[in-house]
Amino acid sequence: MLLQRLGRQSINSSHDMLYGAGFFYQSLVASLQFMRRRQVGRGVITMQLLFTGVEALSVIALISLSLGAVIIIQGVNILPQFGQGVLIYKILITVITRELGPLLCAFVVIARSGTAIATELGHMVVSHQIEAYISTGVNPIRYLVAPRFIGVTLSVILLNLYFNVFGLVGSFILTQFFQPISAFEYFHNLLLYLRTPDIISSLLKSLIFGLIISHTATYNGLKVQQSSTEVPQMVIRSVVQGFTLCIIADAIITMIYYI
């Protein structure tokens, strides 16, 4: 009995994963075609960028400014005592650019936009709007998923860039009110220690996190069958899957970076 249930769950999980992989492939192809064909859903991308990117900017700015300022103040006070004052730049780059920047941006986008997308698509399924699209010959993946896929992914990348700007530049300005340090020395050393692989790693993480978030949100949103009570369940599932997959991807990319 137990074995039977375990086997059934395994088969369902495998089927679900394969279905998800297929959905991801379809979304990716549709997104690439969407960029090339300049379809009518361009406005959807714009709105998605507005809601996911622009509106999340204030939260991102607040988080990155606070985080950067804390690192600078702590580093300036503690590290020179051990003769390792220059480590502050490495710590800033590691924390802001490579690790927490992409991850915190992803978390904010999951919490704000991932849930919104999953809810919206779930309600569209419940209200038979998806069926209507299909019946009129409109591919819901191309029309609904692809713009969100592109919009969320671009938003995460752009938000990550802003996170870096606010975290590295804005936090320096904020620190000047508490503990002034030489601007030339700060930016000179920061740009000296900031390496191209750091930027590539950060952008790569943002891209992958964007893909993960958009995929989990659209996939779980469209997975709603018929009842509106399924919507919050799928929203929660999309959030949990989004967090988990982002952290796993972060770990894998970080490991690849150090190989």
């Binding site: 714009t46 507005l50 990117g53 860039l161 802003y162």
Partner: peptide, 19 residues
């Protein structure tokens, strides 16, 4: 929306280019 998103994108790209 388009202008705001355009500015949002442009500033980010410019920041990256400047860095």
């Amino acid at each position: 929306a388009e202008q705001i998103v355009g500015l949002f994108t442009l500033l980010a790209i410019l920041s990256l280019a400047a860095i």
